[in-house]
Design a binder for these strands. Structure first.
Lengths: 225, 225
DNA sequence: GCGGGGATTATCCAAAAGGATTATATGCTA
DNA sequence: TAGCATATAATCCTTTTGGATAATCCCCGC
């Protein structure tokens, strides 16, 4: 099976290297190289349906029209074409936006050409978009750090599963993370500040921390609110 | 460098295979095998700090306490330990929940033992969680299909809008909310603890707060991370 | 070259938090 | 009923924070 490839990158050096490396593999056929988003769309429009590329390797930072815009336009105009980002950028904002724009995969330029070729081939065997490991981890962190949230459905609730704080302790933890002093917590609950403090110490032991800051970190990260 | 590994899987066959394969690599040292979440926590509690595993390979489907609960508990109790899911399940719900529970990586059992070993080693070189390519693509699709959405507050950036903290102050705030003492912050940045403290006081004035707890609350609520 | 902001370090003091220990009261349960 | 968990309260002591104040250094812009 022959994979038809388009390359879009403003650096002619990068274009040529890619071109050379992929041409070594008989499975790939380079259909065109373009130097920016506008150039890319023009070249795509000149092709008839049967000679459209299967996959377009798209750099992100380009003059005239950047990779994000090109992917958004291209995936709308040519839905059968898969767009794979191939860039040096690994910041989460770019990753997120590129995926939203319709990227099928996301590879870093510091992957070896061998790896890139391998992942592209793999994409057709497994019907899964190629992703550099580092990028996959970044996406995982997006999910983990609540930068993205699940639209509905239940997420895991560690409150009930672990840290079996008593009701009173839960209540006091709630005040603790709001920044109140022991004396203020005591005043709000009509108990002695000593008692408030005792509860807090007990909470620390259950959470295996030894400062308010660590307890707050845990409370926020694990959603113990 | 030696990587200390814990294995948690209810299938003794899988445990043994993993054990054998990893033991072939001199870089790995198997600290323990556990057959479920409860067994795992018991074994972890018997270890002193210095002999805790670096990474725990965790199956998901287990009797008594499943892998999700075990990861949630373990990552809270032993924050220095990295948890990597190693399972046959690749449905998005399990992936999502495992990540939320604190999984650092997610590998499929149909990876070759060689690959698993390689990805674990790679994890320490690149400080990025190991993720099987198929899983990476599933995660990408989660984002693409709007199953997850970017949090509004995460995109709004009050950092630049208000509180104009300097770069150094941002950096120190980052360590502050992690619960480090002044002396620890100083040590990490190679500055005097007095200086660290001075920065913190300056931060408080800019944020109009007067305690670490209040600063953390603000940082979390306003996404000053 | 002079001023200003940022980064660095320090000292002194007071307030607050953290930790250990002890003690009492209450309600549940083996 | 004896034991256990929880909540309450206090004392003593150490460590950490928060705040004020002052001094030095460096870089950048006027």
């Amino acid at each position: 099976m022959i994979i038809k490839v388009g390359i879009v990158d403003d650096k002619s050096g990068d274009r040529n290297i890619l071109n050379d490396k992929l041409s070594r593999h008989p499975e790939f056929k380079i259909i065109f190289s373009a130097k920016d988003g506008v150039d890319f769309l023009e070249k795509m429009n000149l092709l008839d349906q049967s000679s459209l590329p299967d996959v377009v390797l798209m750099d992100l930072e380009m003059p005239k029209m950047d990779g994000i815009a090109a992917i958004a336009a291209g995936s709308a105009l040519f839905p059968s074409v898969k767009f794979v980002v191939l860039t040096i950028f690994d910041d989460e904002e770019k990753i997120f936006v590129a995926i939203k724009a319709g990227a099928f995969g996301y590879l870093l330029k510091d992957e070896s050409a061998e790896n890139i070729a391998g992942m592209l081939l793999n994409m057709y065997e497994n019907d899964a978009g190629p992703i550099s490991p580092g990028i996959a981890y970044k996406i995982l962190q997006l999910v983990q750090n609540n930068k993205v949230t699940r639209d509905a459905k239940a997420t895991f609730d560690p409150k009930k599963t672990f840290f079996d704080l008593t009701d009173r302790e839960q209540e006091i933890l709630g005040l603790l993370v709001k920044g109140f002093l022991y004396k203020e917590i005591g005043a709000q609950l009509n108990i002695s500040p000593h008692t408030a403090k005792k509860h807090v110490i007990n909470i620390y032991q259950k959470l295996h921390v030894n400062s308010r800051a660590q307890a707050m970190k845990l409370a926020y990260e694990k959603g113990l609110l």
